[in-house]
Nucleic acid binder design. Structure first.
Lengths: 194, 194
DNA sequence: CTATACATGTAACAAGTTACATGATTAA
DNA sequence: TTAATCATGTAACTTGTTACATGTATAG
């Protein structure tokens, strides 16, 4: 349901088209709730049926401009106040980290450093985005700035974490007798509880 | 595909059943890649067909114990080294933060504080889990500790972020003339680009 | 004229969640 | 004996991704 409310929320701030919304999801919302146009257009149709949004204009190339209705805004507020937030974190790079013991330490460290670099790049991107937002402007902009701050802090720690993990792997490898190329997988595989 | 490789990875470390795997996903992997038993059992069947795992034993109540095969381990390593990681972050509480300008500031601040408390609770949970893992034990445990550290750091910043955001909302509300109960939504809604 | 950006949609598939469904073993 | 835990599975549905498909307006 999150996408549905996100669309209403954006349209409550400012009337715009599906194309505009898609761009919003590709920039400011990219690090909170990414969505493609193929998901957005059908959802807009459903929101029209629900009466949570309405078409307020049109433009060249079949452009349709939508705005949130009072009902839509009520539904959004109801979602925010009367439903539990899903605080799940699902992040593939962390999953990958669990299994890097199957690689030789040099490769594992390289991968952590690649993660660190990628996170740092995203952080710079978000930082530029944050600079375009004013702290003391409109309520929507103030909220956006608070949300953006989460992304800023998250990517900063992810970057630090990955760099730290790379160093740890290197440090441990240095203490090892540099035996085979890879850790002895079969030894741990023999551990079994039937 | 992540689930598939996660299962092979866990079974490369230690032979176990679908039930055991489900518990692993509910504890150590819960904050990296959550998965339910309804997703795990069918995937195990597919992994058997692929030859990436094999059944190595059985137990009471139809218990089936699986282990990763050499092919499975090769596939896992190939995934880790030859495919791009998906570094997407999708987190509902951040999305919600974007739209809290539609609520009165008191309610918005309360919600941020509830977020902070929930994150802090998860952090304590993860901290207990981390204490059960040794830094210098087996390679799999060392990897798990590195991965867990990401969760630790992420939940710490999320908790700090939410508390900070709550304070910010309060601080801003204090400077406001306490006019109506809610921000003037209609004013910003009038902003429109056709 | 020609490439790029604008603009909207659909279809097929993959992944994930919730609910349904069943039964065996064990500990109190 | 009875509740909890162990243990495996399926079905229906929702959500999200990738690819397909089409056409218009604008800037160089």
């Amino acid at each position: 349901m999150s996408l549905r409310y996100a669309l209403v929320g954006l349209l409550a701030e400012e009337a715009m088209s599906g194309y505009d919304l898609t761009k919003r999801f590709a920039v400011s919302l990219a690090h909170a709730w990414p969505a493609q146009h193929s998901q957005i257009y059908p959802e807009l149709a459903r929101l029209m049926e629900l009466g949570w949004i309405c078409q307020t204009g049109s433009g060249p190339r079949g452009r349709k401009v939508y705005a949130a209705t009072a009902e839509g805004l009520t539904a959004l507020r109801d979602w925010l106040t009367h439903t539990d937030a899903d605080r799940t974190l699902r992040h593939e790079p962390i999953l990958r980290a669990f299994f890097r013991w199957t690689l030789d330490p040099g490769e594992a460290a390289n991968q952590f450093r690649a993660d660190a670099a990628a996170y740092a790049a995203t952080l710079r991107e978000l930082d530029n985005l944050a600079r375009t937002l004013d702290w003391e402007s409109s309520p929507p902009d103030r909220s956006a700035r608070l949300a953006l701050e989460a992304g800023l802090r998250l990517y900063r720690v992810l970057s630090e974490w990955a760099a730290w993990a790379a160093d740890r792997v290197d440090a441990h490898a240095a203490t090892q007798p540099a035996a085979g190329e890879r850790p002895d997988v079969s030894a741990s595989r023999r551990r079994t509880r039937q």
